[in-house]
Design a protein around this nucleic acid. Structure first.
Length: 302
DNA sequence: AACTTCCGCAACCGCATACCT
DNA sequence: GAGGTATGCGGTTGCGGAAGT
């Protein structure tokens, strides 16, 4: 990507985002402003400025917002910072099994339409999903020696990984409910904390940056809230909110695929559309193959 | 402890499209 | 309709911390 590297070479990414010169863009801000523009990591002060300004005036009109707020940033940069990090409803932490399932399924449908996928995962940003895909999913594809966009990999996800995730999610829910039952004599707040702790554990996170202390509160609140929701479900009827459910997208497939996966792992041969994959997957069932253990390892990574 | 490598994430870029005049 | 500007999207990069040696 010569073009990318070329343009990237103009950037100054010194920590703290020292003012740098810009020579690009169709926007062509006045010369004196170009000299002042900052890029690179946002400081706490900048975050606060942006958050306060949006709280007072709302979002939108990003270029003028940046100027009016006194931020020496491009409108683009402000928009990105707000949408991906500062928005109050942005959810942080690892993806839940539900979310992973949804991403896998939606990606098989829509490909790299990250923003479209993100619309079905409330609180998640396209950037986060994109990063997840590139760092986790593609890594797994690499381990399987196939392309993440290949039919083979998609089938592997569909028949092996997704049922695995579904199982794990069931297991997680059972654990939470079990915890609630065991501790029912405790003070309610203790129970909620315990559940929240479990949620925190299952979605532990790298949010502990120096500039994100105020985010921690939000994350904690969100997880405690999640714990409350899980516990208030009471009878094992917990389900994601309507928007976050799979709404038949993968649910039906997951149910039917459970049997396919069971066939695979149980020694049978699932009916796969791709005859090549059928043979490949059949390998799992006929003794232990390298691929099988690779998949098991992949699962442990989750 | 020091150094290197790997990995995840935030932020950037160019391009496409929508919107405005 | 043409031109200019704003916004949104997807791809890519580099930093910083974790893990490994």
């Amino acid at each position: 990507m010569a073009e990318s590297q070329r343009s990237r070479s103009r950037t100054c990414s010194s920590p703290g985002g020292a003012p740098v010169e810009l020579d690009d863009d169709h926007g062509h801000p006045p010369e004196e402003e170009q000299l002042e523009l900052r890029r690179g990591p946002w400081t706490v002060d900048e975050d606060l400025t942006l958050v306060n300004y949006i709280a007072d005036h709302g979002e939108g009109r990003w270029n003028s917002l940046a100027r009016a707020a006194g931020l020496k940033r491009t409108g683009k940069s402000c928009r990105l910072r707000w949408l991906n990090y500062l928005r109050p409803d942005v959810k942080r932490g690892n993806f839940t099994a539900d979310e992973q399932l949804l991403i896998l399924d939606l990606h098989t449908r829509w490909g790299n339409r990250w923003s479209k996928i993100a619309q079905h995962l409330p609180g998640r940003t396209d950037n986060e999903i994109k990063n997840y895909w590139r760092t986790r999913v593609q890594k797994h594809a690499k381990q399987l020696n196939c392309d993440a966009n290949s039919k083979r990999f998609k089938d592997a996800m569909r028949y092996l990984w997704m049922p695995h995730l579904a199982d794990a999610d069931d297991h997680r829910r059972r654990l939470l409910l079990q915890t609630a039952a065991q501790q029912h004599h405790h003070h309610a707040a203790d129970v909620v904390s315990a559940a929240a702790g479990m949620v925190m554990t299952s979605s532990s996170d790298s949010f502990a940056t120096a500039e994100s202390s105020y985010d921690d509160v939000g994350v904690l609140y969100a997880n405690v809230h999640a714990g409350e929701m899980l516990l208030s479900g009471g009878g094992g009827d917990w389900a994601p909110e309507p928007e976050t459910t799979n709404q038949g997208l993968w649910a039906a497939a997951a149910v039917s695929d459970q049997s396919a996966a069971a066939q695979v792992t149980g020694g049978g041969c699932g009916q796969f559309q791709d005859p090549e994959l059928s043979g490949w997957v059949q390998g799992f069932s006929e003794g232990i193959t390298e691929n099988f253990w690779a998949l098991e390892d992949i699962w442990k990574i989750q």
